[in-house]
Structure formats: structure tokens, C-alpha cells
């Protein structure tokens, strides 16, 4: 079991009213799964991804990640956990504008204190694998959206995570680019990387092995 959410609640207080962002979420994800979270805007897809990615807190419930009780962990420990095992891919790519393609991919390794020679090798592998060696010295603005998202995925993969969390990864791309990216996810999944994506698109969801539906912060129906 990679992760297990039990009775997760998350809310914000607005005046005297309590608005639930997540309501009684129960979820198990095994290693090697490719899961899609679907639901309309505001249904809590991103929030759920952020909770799974440990970027966001929840108010109630238990969350075990690789048998570690995340809800009981200290901030620092939790950060170490997601740094080690989780990679993020965003709809808006979120590359750092001032860094080149090479440097963007390298950055997570810097924060993990990986040695220079090892870093070079890892980044070179990644550039090679995604066929972007020729673009390594370009800045994000000089790339197309699809290429930027490719760099975003390369960056997420560089630290060899067990889990990739992708929030609408193709939301800013045209259909051809989308398809390429989804194919890439599928390949990665075949190599053993667990993937959870949030998406609007049935088409994208179909690449996954399982889909859950959210509505107003609650599991709606399960396939």
C-alpha cells in the first residue's frame, strides 16, 4: 500500500459558517496505480491532491503514506517525506523564469544536496530521455507550452519519486500536446511510477487505471 486516507475532513470557517473543502474522504492507492480524480471546478480535486502531496493540511482524519502516519508527523519530517517520494506537475508548468531548462530540472537535486557529478549525470539522462538536450540552455519563455510541460515533468521525475501528482497537467495545452503528455504518463506508469492526476477530461482519465469522482468535496461514485 502506497497511501491510505481515512475519514479526511478539511474545512474553512467563513463567518459563523463552516465550508467543507473535503468531506469524509476515504481512499487507498497502491503502488503502480494510475488514478484520475475528476469533478467540476471547485469540487476539491486540487485540494485533495495538495493534501496527498502534503502541501496542505487537513482538519480531521488519518493519512498513512508508506506506513508513516502523516497526520502525526512534524512539519520537517513531513517535508522530508514528500521531497523524497513525491513529484509535482502543474497545469501552469510553474517553471522558474530566470532559470534555463537545465537549471530548472537540476533545482530539486540542489535542494537534496546531490553531488555535482551525480547531478550532471542525472540531468543529462533526463534531457536525453525527453529529447530536449538541444533546448537545455533555453529559458522557459523560449519554449512552447508542451515543451514547458515536458520540462515540468522531467523536473518532477529527477528525484526519482514513487508518486507523481499532476494537477490538470494538460489544461493549458492543445489536444496534440495533451496526447503526447498523457502517453508519457502512461509510459512512466508502466515503468512503475504511481500517478495521481486531477483532470476535467474523460479522455485523459481514460489513460488511468481507475477514476474517482468528487463533488463538493465528497467522493461521488467510484468506478
Amino acid at each position: 500500500m502506497l497511501l491510505e486516507l481515512k475519514n479526511i475532513y478539511k474545512w474553512v470557517n467563513s463567518g459563523s459558517r463552516r465550508i467543507f473543502l473535503l468531506k469524509d474522504i476515504n481512499l487507498e492507492v497502491k503502488e503502480g496505480e494510475f488514478m484520475s480524480i475528476m469533478g467540476p471546478s471547485g469540487s476539491g480535486k486540487s485540494t485533495l491532491l495538495n493534501v496527498i502531496g502534503m502541501l496542505d493540511h487537513f482538519n480531521e482524519g488519518t493519512y498513512n503514506f508508506l506506513n508513516e502516519p502523516v497526520h502525526e508527523l512534524k512539519e520537517k519530517h513531513r517535508a522530508n517525506l514528500y521531497k523524497e517520494y513525491i513529484g509535482f506537475v502543474f497545469q501552469a508548468y510553474h517553471l522558474i523564469d530566470e532559470l534555463t531548462v537545465y537549471e530548472n530540472i537540476e533545482t530539486p537535486l540542489l535542494y537534496k544536496n546531490v553531488k555535482s557529478s551525480e547531478r550532471k549525470a542525472l540531468v543529462a539522462d533526463m534531457l536525453d530521455r525527453f529529447n530536449i538536450v538541444g533546448k537545455k540552455d533555453l529559458f522557459p519563455q523560449q519554449l512552447s507550452g508542451g515543451q514547458q510541460q515536458l520540462v515540468g515533468i522531467a523536473r518532477a521525475l529527477i528525484s526519482k519519486p514513487k508518486l507523481i501528482l499532476a494537477d490538470e497537467p494538460t489544461g493549458n495545452l492543445n489536444s496534440k500536446q495533451s496526447e503526447e503528455i498523457m502517453e508519457l504518463f502512461k509510459d512512466l506508469n508502466n515503468e512503475g511510477v504511481t500517478i495521481i492526476q486531477a483532470t476535467h477530461s474523460e479522455m485523459n482519465a481514460s489513460y488511468g487505471s481507475r477514476t474517482i469522482h468528487l463533488l463538493d468535496g465528497m467522493r461521488n461514485r467510484t468506478n
Binding site: 502531496g53 502541501l55 517535508a79 521531497k83 509535482f88 510553474h94 517553471l95 522558474i96 523564469d97 530566470e98 533545482t107 530539486p108 535542494y111 537534496k112 523536473r155 528525484s159
Partner: peptide, 13 residues
């Protein structure tokens, strides 16, 4: 701000 966010997600303390 965005840069800070990205860096944090990528493991910056």
C-alpha cells in the same frame, strides 16, 4: 511568489 512556491514544492526549505 510563484518562484517561492515552486522552490518550496521542489524541496527548498
Amino acid at each position: 511568489a510563484r518562484e517561492v512556491g515552486v522552490r518550496k514544492v521542489m524541496g527548498a526549505e
